[in-house]
Design a protein around this nucleic acid. Structure first.
Length: 489
DNA sequence: TTAGGGTTAG
C-alpha cells in the first residue's frame, strides 16, 4: 500500500507524480531495509514501474533523496536488483552516488567498492571523480586525505592533475576553514602548478571568510606583482571581506572607489553582485537606511536586482528593521516578476517566527507548498522550533510527523535534536516515551545523538518505568558501532 | 567540470 498524492502535489511542475510517489514510498520504509528488500518492495508497490528504470527518473529520485544519504544509497544499490541486466547508470548519477557514499563513512559499500563498480559500468576515473572525492573528503573533516589523494592520483588512477583541479582542492580547503593549509599548499606546489587569477581569488576569499582582510589584501598585492591582473570577482571578494569583518567604513570606501574608477575601467564597474554585497553588508551592520538607498541607486542605474538582492534586503529588514516592511518587499519582488526561491521563504518565515507572528509564518508556508519551491528541512525546523518555544507542543509534533509525507523531506539530525530536547519540559511520561521513539528512529536513520541526549532519554525512560524500552535503546547502542564510539567519548 | 552576492543557528 502506498499513500495517495495530495491534490496540491499534482499542481507542482517539479514533482512528477511517479517521482513523488516513489520517494515517499522509500522515505517510509523501515530503517532495516536492504537494497534487495527495497527493490522487492518497489516492484510489488508499483507493478507498472518501467524496467529498467529510465536514467532521468532514477537520477531524479536519487537527487531527491540526497538529503538522506543512507536512504539515497539504499535506492542506488537497489537499482541493481530491480532489473536484469542492471539499468544504464549515467556518469552524473554515478558521481552523485559517489558523493553520497563519501558522506556516509560507516557505509559498508564504501568508496573503493563504488569506484570498482564505476569501472565495471565503464565510467572512468575522471577529473570529476577526483573533484567529487576531494570535495567530500574535505567536507567530512578529512582535508589531509583530500590532499594525499590529489598528490597521488596519477600513481593510483593514472590521472594527471590539472590547474582547475588544484584550484578546486584549494577552494574546498578554504570553504572548510582550512585557509592556512590551502595557502601553504599553494606555496609548496607553486612551481608545479603556476597559480592563475582564480587560484589567488580562491585563497583571498578564504581569508575574507576568516575575517582576515589584511591577508587577502597582501595576496592581492602579490598577485599584481606576479603580473596577474585582478578581475571584477577579485574586487567583489575583497568588498565582501570588509563587510564580513565588520569594517563597514573600509567597505563603503572601497565601493565608492569601484564606482569612481569603474567609469574608466570596466573591471571596477559595480555589478549586481557588488550591489547585493553592499546592501547585505550595510544592512547587517545596522545601516538599513543606507542599504535601501543603495538598492534604489542600483535600479536607477539600470542594474536589475536578482532574487539574491531581494533576499539580502528582506533578510536585513527582518533582522534590523520591521518584518512588515520585509513582507512588503516580498510582495514587491513578486509584482516585479522576480520569483521567490527557497532562501526567500527561509529568511521571511524565520523573520515572522522571530517576531512572534506564527500565523503569518504558517500562511507563507502554506503558500509555499501550493505555489512556491518545495519547503526544505530547514524551514520545517524553524517552524517546529518556534512552535515548541511557544509551548505549542502538539502542533509542533503534528508538523514533525508530516515531514516525510510528500517528497523527500524527512527530519534530519537537527529536527530530532530540536524536538527531543523539548520533550522534557512538561515532565509528562508520554513526552518521554515520544522522545524514546524519536531517538530510536533517528539512530535507525543514521543520525547519532550526543552522549548527553542519549543519557537524558535513557534516564527519562527508566524514571518513568519504561525499563523494556530503555533496554531496547541500550541494545540499539550496542548495535551501532559508531554510536557506541560517540557515546563513550 | 575552477573563483564573487542571498539561508539554515541557539
Amino acid at each position: 500500500m502506498h499513500p495517495s498524492l495530495p491534490p496540491s502535489a499534482a499542481t507542482k511542475t517539479t514533482n512528477t507524480p511517479l517521482l513523488s510517489l516513489i520517494t515517499t514510498h522509500i522515505l517510509r520504509l523501515p530503517t532495516t531495509s536492504t537494497p534487495l528488500s527495497l527493490s522487492q518492495s518497489l516492484k510489488s508497490s508499483f507493478p507498472s514501474l518501467p524496467t529498467p528504470l529510465p536514467c532521468p527518473l532514477s537520477h531524479s529520485i536519487l537527487k531527491h533523496l540526497s538529503p538522506h544519504p543512507s536512504l539515497a544509497l539504499l535506492f542506488f544499490h537497489s537499482l541493481f536488483h530491480l532489473s536484469s541486466p542492471p539499468p544504464p547508470i549515467s556518469s552524473e548519477t554515478f558521481h552523485l552516488a559517489l558523493s553520497l557514499t563519501a558522506q556516509v563513512p560507516s557505509s559498508p559499500r564504501d568508496v573503493p567498492s563504488l569506484l570498482s563498480l564505476g569501472r565495471r559500468l565503464g565510467i572512468p576515473f575522471s577529473q570529476r571523480t577526483l573533484s567529487t572525492l576531494i570535495e567530500r573528503h574535505v567536507a567530512s573533516g578529512k582535508p589531509d586525505k583530500a590532499v594525499r589523494l590529489f598528490i597521488s592520483v596519477h600513481r593510483f588512477h593514472g590521472l594527471h592533475q590539472t590547474l582547475p583541479c588544484f584550484n578546486a582542492l584549494l577552494d574546498a580547503l578554504c570553504k572548510a576553514r582550512q585557509v592556512e593549509k590551502a595557502h601553504s599548499l599553494l606555496r609548496a606546489l607553486k612551481s608545479r602548478f603556476p597559480p592563475d587569477v582564480i587560484t589567488y581569488n580562491t585563497i583571498a576569499d578564504g581569508y575574507c571568510r576568516h575575517k582576515c582582510t589584511s591577508k587577502a589584501l597582501d595576496l592581492l598585492k602579490e598577485m599584481v606583482e606576479t603580473g596577474i591582473q585582478p578581475t571584477k570577482n577579485t574586487y567583489n571578494i575583497i568588498l565582501n571581506g570588509f563587510f564580513r569583518a565588520g569594517q563597514v567604513r573600509h567597505g563603503w570606501e572601497f565601493f565608492l572607489q569601484m564606482k569612481k574608477r569603474g567609469k574608466k575601467d570596466c573591471n571596477f564597474e559595480p555589478d549586481v553582485v557588488t550591489y547585493t554585497t553592499v546592501v547585505h553588508g550595510l544592512g547587517l551592520n545596522g545601516k538599513l537606511d543606507r542599504a535601501h538607498q543603495v538598492f534604489a541607486e542600483m535600479t536607477d542605474k539600470g542594474c536589475l536586482p536578482t532574487v539574491a538582492t531581494y533576499n539580502a534586503l528582506i533578510q536585513v529588514t527582518c533582522k534590523k528593521g520591521n518584518v512588515e516592511d520585509a513582507v512588503k518587499m516580498f510582495d514587491e519582488m513578486l509584482i516585479k516578476g522576480c520569483e521567490a526561491n527557497v532562501v526567500t521563504y527561509t529568511v521571511l518565515i524565520k523573520g515572522l517566527c522571530h517576531a512572534g507572528k506564527m500565523d503569518h509564518a504558517m500562511e507563507l508556508f502554506e503558500r509555499m507548498k501550493q505555489a512556491g519551491p518545495d519547503p526544505n528541512v530547514q524551514i520545517y525546523n524553524i517552524l517546529i522550533r518556534h512552535m515548541l518555544e511557544d509551548g505549542e507542543i502538539e502542533k509542533a509534533l503534528d508538523l514533525f510527523n508530516k515531514m516525510g509525507d510528500r517528497g523527500a523531506c524527512l527530519p534530519n539530525r537537527d529536527s530530532y535534536n530540536i524536538v527531543i530536547s523539548r520533550m522534557f519540559v512538561r515532565k509528562r511520561p508520554e513526552d518521554v516515551l515520544t522522545a524514546g521513539k524519536m531517538m530510536k528512529e533517528m539512530v535507525g536513520r543514521g543520525y547519532l545523538p550526543t552522549r548527553f541526549m542519549f543519557n537524558r532519554v535513557l534516564n527519562g525512560l527508566l524514571l518513568t518505568g519504561n525499563q523494556t524500552f530503555a533496554n531496547e535503546l541500550l541494545r540499539l547502542q550496542e548495535k551501532h558501532k559508531r554510536l557506541r564510539q560517540v557515546i563513550r567519548l
